[in-house]
Design a protein around this nucleic acid. Sequence first.
DNA 1: TCATTGATTTCA
DNA 2: GAAATCAATGAT
Length: 179
Amino acid sequence: MNQRSLIDRKAGSRLPPDFFRRDVLLVAPELLGKILVVRSAAEIPERFMINETEAYRGVEDKACHASKGRTERTDVMFRTGGRIYVYLIYGMHWMLNFVTGPANEPQAVLIRGVEGYNGPGRVSKVLGIDKSFYGEDLNISERIWIEDNGDKVSVKTGKRIGIDYAGEKWVNKPWRFFL
DNA sequence: TCATTGATTTCA
DNA sequence: GAAATCAATGAT
């Protein structure tokens, strides 16, 4: 029971802190094929391979929440990469993001899909992600982290989804990455 | 294609 | 304070 991952992915090694401190446009595609590990209380870790991400980059990216300035909600994006940014959209869906880049350079990767569960709302639902994960440090957390098990994948790119309000310049950026 | 749903942000 | 907004999903 509670083994919701379709494939029993083998354990890998946790990604080093430096992985998340690089530019989001490097981190987002490289997260594909990596293993998202979640451990709820007193259960064995569940492993899901990441198969779709989107990059949100800096205050100049109108699709990035941080473009509106540093607020209580977006604060974690201005911190050093490696933490989790979660927020509620449409009153019902938690979005799971990983903060990347150096401090004071707000960037984040939205996890749009893991194997078997495409769509960012479904990802957080099956993983049990909610506001309690806001600011969680992927480098030290005991309930969520990312592993590299050495699998190689081929990456495709496309336009980001659901950001028409950001204007054509940003809508057309090929900042969605998938397998 | 449309209803759902509530935190965050914006406008007074 | 109140009103509008919104990186989506699932049912119809």
